[in-house]
Structures are given as C-alpha cells and as structure tokens.
Design a protein around this nucleic acid. Sequence first.
DNA 1: AGAATAGTGTCTATCAGACACTATGCA
DNA 2: TGCATAGTGTCTGATAGACACTATTCT
Lengths: 231, 231
Amino acid sequence: MSAVSVGPFPRPAVAVDLVILTVVDTDLKVLLITRGLPPQERSWALPGGFVRVGEGGTGGESLEAAAARELAEETGLGEGAVFLEQLYTYGAPDRDPRGRVISVAWYALVPSDRVTQVVAGSDAAAARWFSLGGGSLPPLAFDHAQILGDAVRRVQGKIDYAPVAFRLVPEQFTVPELRAVYEAVKGTDYDAANFRRRFRRMVEDGLIVPAPGKRPAEVGRPARVWRWAEG
Amino acid sequence: MSAVSVGPFPRPAVAVDLVILTVVDTDLKVLLITRGLPPQERSWALPGGFVRVGEGGTGGESLEAAAARELAEETGLGEGAVFLEQLYTYGAPDRDPRGRVISVAWYALVPSDRVTQVVAGSDAAAARWFSLGGGSLPPLAFDHAQILGDAVRRVQGKIDYAPVAFRLVPEQFTVPELRAVYEAVKGTDYDAANFRRRFRRMVEDGLIVPAPGKRPAEVGRPARVWRWAEG
DNA sequence: AGAATAGTGTCTATCAGACACTATGCA
DNA sequence: TGCATAGTGTCTGATAGACACTATTCT
C-alpha cells in the first residue's frame, strides 16, 4: 500500500553518472569508459549506472551511495579516498534513446598519486584518462559532453574559495605541485611569487603544516613538502 | 522494447520541490503550503509534485518544465517572470514514508512587487509566506527543512558574485531598496556609503541604467530610481 | 661556475570597512 | 528651521598583479 500511494503514474529510470577528474603533470584529465552495450556501443562515455531501488519501490541505496559504489567499481578507490560531490541532475525527455532516464551527475577529484592504481582496478571493458583542452577529447555519448563541461566549470569556480585543490595532489605536496593543479584547472598561468603569498597565508591560518623532508628534484633546488591540516 | 532495455528494475518516483523566496521590507520570506493529503496531512511543506513521464516510460516533461509548471500552479506567475534554478537532488531511501521518492529541488526568486498577486493565484488549500529568521518557521514535512536551508545558503553565496539581487526587487528600484535585499538575504547590515560605491561601479560598467523619476519617500529625501540593463 | 628551480621583497593599483560630511524634500 | 533619509568624500588596511631579486641543489 505505501508504495502505491505515490500513484500509478509511469516512472523514469534514475541513474548516476560520474565525472572523475585528476591532474597529472600540467594536465586536467577525465576518466572515460567505452560503452560495451548498445545504445552508442563503443562510443566513449562517463562511467555510471542505475540507482538501486528495493522491490516494491521502497528502500534501496541513497544517491550518494550509488555514486560511491560506481566510483569504487570503476576506479577501485574505496569510500572516502576521493572527493565526491553532487553536480547537477539532467532530465531532458530525449537524453537517452532507451526511454526516460534521469541522471544525477556527480564529480570526483582523484589525487595524482592514485591515478596509476585507478585504471588497473577498473572493471569496465576499457577505461582511459583523457586530457581536457587541446581538443583531444573523443565525441561523448548522450549529453555527457554537457555534463563534463558543467563539472569542469564547477571545479574552476570552486577552487577559488574552497579547498578542493588539495584533493588533487598527494597527501604530501610542494608549492609548485599545488600551483600546477591551479594552472591545470583554471587553464591560466599563476605568478609563482604571488601564488606563494596566498599559500603563506594558509600556512599562517594553520590550514597547512610543514611535512618532514624535501622533495628531491630531477633538476634544480628541491622544494619543501607540506601537508593539508584537516582530516 | 526501447523502454524495457534499461532493465526491469524497480524505479523510484521522481518529484520536484520548490523553494520560492522573496524579500518584503527587510525580511527574507519563503512560500509554504499546507499538505491537503496524507502523509503529514496539515503540516507545512514546500510546494512540489511529481514529474510527468509518458506512458511506457518515455518522453514527458523536462525537469525544468516540471518545476516551472509547479511554480505557475502555485504562484500564478508565468514562465520567465521569475528566476528559477536547480538546487540539489535529494534521494535518501527513507525521506518519504510512501516509498522511494527522489526529489529534484529548485529555488525561485520572486520580485517583491509580485508577492501580492502570488497567494491569490495559488491553487493550494493554503499557501503563506513565512519569514526566515526569528524562529517563526513551523516544522516542515519530510526533509524540507534541509532543502530550505540549502537553498538559503545557495542564495547567500550567489548574491556576492551573480546578479541575483535584481530578481528580488521590482524592475525599477532604488539603491536603498537593493541594499535592503542584500541585508535580508545575508542577515547582516551593509554600510550605506560602501554599498553605494559597489553600486556605482555597476553603473559605470553599464549593468545598471537610470530610470526616469524619483521614488517619493514617506519621509526624508526621495531616492533616484534605477533599472537593470539586461533582458 | 653555470643552469635550473625554489623562494623572498617590494612597488603599485584596487577595493572594502569605517566614518565624517553634504544634499534634498517635507512638516 | 529641524528632521529624516539620500548621497559624497576620504582615510586606512588588506590584497592581487608585476617583477626584480636571492637561495639552494646538481652537474
């Protein structure tokens, strides 16, 4: 009775799609998979899947749990290891040729030192990191190009006022590494001296603390190592 | 066949809920309705309704169309008359006792001079504007208190960098009226002189143009009238 | 010593907060 | 003339951009 009381109207399918981002060297990258099934078989797409709902239309997993589950299946990265935040919900009636599919999109930020273990743990037929910018992205299935663009704009905006850059570097990082993340995300160069000043204020505010050791450089003077102070 | 190919899995119901905000005098207000049906009959709630999906699980209205439709039904305000933007999607498995209901929440900003026509056009049994702050809000149904809080925080953040304040004042407005909107939204006072300086820069950038006439004040010196330059 | 990168100091323009001040309309 | 509100000018401290400079490591 309880499930029936929301009415006998037709219901859409509800999916989650993931924009999984990282920065390697000076490049912002996104993890894409090749679809193994129709429709749009063999075209590149964002990883995702349907939200699990209990029999009778009650219970099941939360949206965040569905996103975290897909993320773990796709990357092998466990809960809490990466930043995961809801982006936007896409529901145009014709966005999926199979019928009415509403997609709750999420974006994830993967630290650069975990990128190597990601593709290995993937259970997709094929998963690959693609650089954004430079026009090297393949055509994407459904409305995934739109979703990807929205995710990138969200991170670009958020990096200026929220501590998201730290989710893209290893736990221990140097100032030039952090600056490279900003430059990759925003697509512009930052003056090294001015960036350091902003960074120094974060140190003074206790947001960042020194970590032991220095980073041996391939060439030039080694950099000091730092660590984000919060959990 | 096409609708079936997304699988025979149980599907959630999908709804839209609306946080309809306005500023009257110095108060930020939200439009709430009393639920005419169980569950939580007679408790106050955000206006909302289910997204219409075609028979066979294809087609139907977009999420934005569903939100705009509910807004029009609830307030009598036509398309494009008010600012409407997606907020967040709520999907905890137990958020609705009737079963699995995923809600795509939107928020709307109603200009203060349209507030009077709003309640008249409502088709709800009872609809009322409630002031936020001052603790005068009634308990809300489901997770609507959470949604309302998220909406207010979104507007508070967005007013600093996006032209949303102009969606809360009449087409023609004075600087003190605009300042009152900022103060109501942010919950803090603004120095009148410094606010004017920010405002003057927007005039210099062509974002705001003078409108004819002055606003006759009840008391004191009348204020000049301005108009937002865009669409 | 020289090359390469890490890190510092400083000048300047811009902007926000604080606040003293002037202008206008009305009783 | 006095009151209430609209609107201006200016001082100060914080911050971002530009850029010249010093420091450390390796070959």
